[in-house]
């Protein structure tokens, strides 16, 4: 699903095309096995992210990672992890269809997100991600750059989050 891009000078909101999303749980001691399977050295500090050749990973908890890859790679990634299971027990859950990703970009993106995000976003470094709340919906917030964020939101919460963003966008556009 590609919703129309909505934007004005300072902020743009767009639903991004589908991507392969996977949730990985593995003991930190076995992380090297997962890194080899995914072809990317997974970060060990909560919040940290890494990206290489279309693959990206963020550490969300002491033993939890969010993985992104092109949709076409999903089956191969699942197969690689299945093969790695003999070396290290883990859980890899495909969550591609569970969520939508909304991109929020523009010079006032950080200020814009503060309409419903309780975090002090000035302390959030580019390249990091964390699970948090957007209003009452649990989301994963990714910061790609000073002026570029992504929100990963569950489908069932999407209408609520999307409506809030619409309202905020109209308020920003008319200078409130």
């Amino acid at each position: 699903m590609n919703a129309p891009v909505k934007s004005f000078d300072a902020v743009s909101v767009a639903v991004l095309p589908p991507v392969a999303r996977l949730n990985l749980r593995i003991a930190p001691a076995n992380l090297a096995v997962a890194s080899a399977a995914f072809g990317l050295t997974l970060p060990t500090k909560i919040g940290q992210g890494v990206a290489k050749k279309g693959h990206a990973a963020w550490c969300l908890g002491p033993d939890e990672w969010l993985l992104h890859a092109p949709e076409a790679d999903q089956a191969a990634i699942v197969a690689d992890f299945t093969a790695a299971r003999v070396k290290a027990p883990h859980s890899l859950t495909v969550i591609s269809d569970r969520e939508f990703t909304i991109a929020i970009t523009g010079p006032r993106a950080q200020e814009f997100l503060s309409v419903a995000c309780p975090l002090d976003l000035s302390r959030m470094a580019p390249g990091t991600a964390k699970r948090t709340l957007f209003d009452t919906a649990q989301v994963v917030l990714i910061r790609d750059a000073d002026d570029a964020f992504r929100i990963e939101v569950w489908r069932s919460f999407f209408p609520h989050v999307s409506d809030l963003l619409d309202i905020a966008l109209r308020e920003f556009a008319c200078g409130l």
């Binding site: 909560i46 969300l60 908890g61 002491p62 699970r131 948090t132 649990q138």
Partner: peptide, 13 residues
């Protein structure tokens, strides 16, 4: 008071 909390909308712990 010593009490339990859960970082439910975060790392989950």
């Amino acid at each position: 008071h010593a009490e339990r909390w859960r970082h439910i909308n975060g790392c989950g712990r």
